[in-house]
Structures are given as C-alpha cells and as structure tokens.
C-alpha cells in the first residue's frame, strides 16, 4: 500500500484512494465544499488545494480527487497551498457574501474577509458546488436538476427553468447543499412539498388519522418500487405467504400491504401499534 506523507505525517492508504482520504485518515483537516463521500468527485470548487512534491518541483493539486498511485509527499499547510485556498475562498465570499455557512468555513480557514467586490449573480448564495446535481443524478437517479448555461451564467436549474416533472420531492439536494440554497417547503393547504428555488412540487401523503403530512407520494412510490422489487423477489416474507409466485403478483400483494402501513404518520402508527399491543 502506498504511503502518503502529509506535512510530515505518514499514512498508508489503498492504491487509488485520494489525498483527501489519506488526510482524513491521518486526522488532518482540508477544507472542502464540492466533495461528498457518497458522490463522484468533480473537484470544481478548488478549495481543497494542496501542494504535491514532484521531486524537482511542486504542483498544486486538488486533494479530493488526486489519486494516490504510489508514495507521495504533500503539503497542506505550506504557504503556497494556504494561499491558493485563501484565494479561492475569497472569490467565493465575493460571490456569496451573505452566506453564513461560507463565512464560518472561511473563519475556520483563517480567511478574514474578501477584497473583491460582488460581480457575479448567485441564486440565494449558490456557489455552484454541484452536490445537489450529483446527488439527484447518482443517488436518487432522477436528474431533475442540473447545470444550465455556462461561464458566469451557470446556474443550477430544472429543465426549462420550470418545475421539474422528474422531481420526486425527496429533498436530497437540500440535504447536501453546503450553503442552504435549497429549501424544502411544505405547503399544508395544498398538501404539497416544494423544492425551492426550483419550484418543483409534489403531492404529499397525509396521515389518515391526524392529517399530518408524511412524505412525498413520489418518494413513497419510488421507495416502494425499489424496496418492493428487492425484498419481494425471494418472496418468503410476502404478506400472504405466497411463496413461488410470479414477479408481478408477488409485487401486487406486497405493495398494498406497505401502502396500508404508510397511511399513518409515524406518530399515529406508534399509537395504533401501542393500542393493538395493549388490547389484542
């Protein structure tokens, strides 16, 4: 296994691991914005710059996607590496001066502020890290949002900048957004969930008992589809005990069963179960 020496500390990592993996393993902090362990690395924010020793010269590389293929020496706290990260952070602060999250990260990096004015438009502090785009594509499998336009006009948007038909209202994008650009809004009256700022809306499943929203109908369906197919196929556990049934009918019996259970919000379900236990 190759050894990575970071600011003098050595760690061994699997071949193909990244410098960032190695640093995290060694307990060394490198700031990141567009990196998420569950997603592919695009190295677009350029915040994780470190210096790589190339023998007779040193090269700035992004830690989050530089693959370790043999022993390497890197510097996280060298003057040049720090300066590079600071430079990138200052540009981001100029783009999204109102982001509290960004300011906190900057502070942790020792960046006091920025000398650059705001010259680019950012939609609600969006720094275009692309995590939302990747989670929607790679984890949810929907690609309901993506990058539109290029250069300074680049934005995250849904197709035609209209509410997306592919959005299932899962909110994964909001969960990964590092600067809080994306919000999940619940519209109780319409019984809908909205993923803002994309304006995509999906009907909510509500509790039969108390009327509280449970989750997006589409997430439910997608989950049922995924879970349904996956667990129903071996078929031992099918609600009616129909072992050896064809795919379709097994699914057909499994689905309503799950559906039934999903009619109640967690709270009411707990109450119901408790009630059932109390008086069998």
């Amino acid at each position: 296994m190759p050894t990575v020496t970071i600011d003098g500390h050595s760690v061994e990592v699997e071949r193909g691991a990244t410098v960032l993996d190695a640093a995290r393993y060694a307990g060394i902090w490198i700031p990141t914005l567009c990196y998420h362990p569950a997603l592919s690395s695009e190295a677009s924010c350029r915040l994780c710059m470190v210096e790589l020793d190339r023998g007779d010269w040193r090269q700035l590389v992004t830690a989050c996607n530089y693959p370790v293929r043999h022993d390497v020496i890197v510097y996280v706290m060298s003057e040049r590496a720090q300066q590079a990260r600071r430079g990138v952070m200052e540009l981001l602060l100029a783009r999204s001066p109102d982001s509290q999250e960004l300011k906190e990260l900057a502070e942790r990096m020792g960046v006091k502020g920025t000398l650059w004015p705001k010259v680019t438009e950012s939609q609600r502090n969006c720094i275009l890290c692309g995590l939302c785009v990747r989670v929607c594509e790679q984890i949810i499998g929907k690609s309901a949002i993506g990058f539109a336009g290029r250069g300074a006009d680049r934005t995250v948007a849904a197709p035609f900048r209209q509410p997306s038909e592919d959005c299932i209202g899962c909110g994964a994008c909001a969960a990964v957004c590092p600067v809080g650009t994306i919000e999940v809004r619940v519209h109780k009256d319409e019984c809908e969930v909205e993923i803002s700022p994309f304006k995509s809306r999906v009907k909510l499943l509500v509790c039969k008992q108390c009327g509280a929203p449970i989750l997006s109908t589409q997430v439910c369906e997608q989950a049922l589809r995924n879970v349904g197919w996956a667990t129903c196929l071996p078929m031992q556990a099918c609600s009616q005990g129909n072992v050896g049934m064809g795919r379709k009918s097994a699914h057909a019996t499994f689905w309503p069963e799950l559906r039934k259970r999903l009619r109640l919000c967690p709270k009411c379900r707990r109450l119901q179960t408790a009630g059932r236990v109390a008086s069998p």
Partner: peptide, 8 residues
C-alpha cells in the same frame, strides 16, 4: 435519458 441532460 433525463430531460435535464438535454436542457443542460
């Protein structure tokens, strides 16, 4: 393919 890809 997702519509988003074409729009992008």
């Amino acid at each position: 393919v997702p519509l988003m890809r074409l729009y992008a």
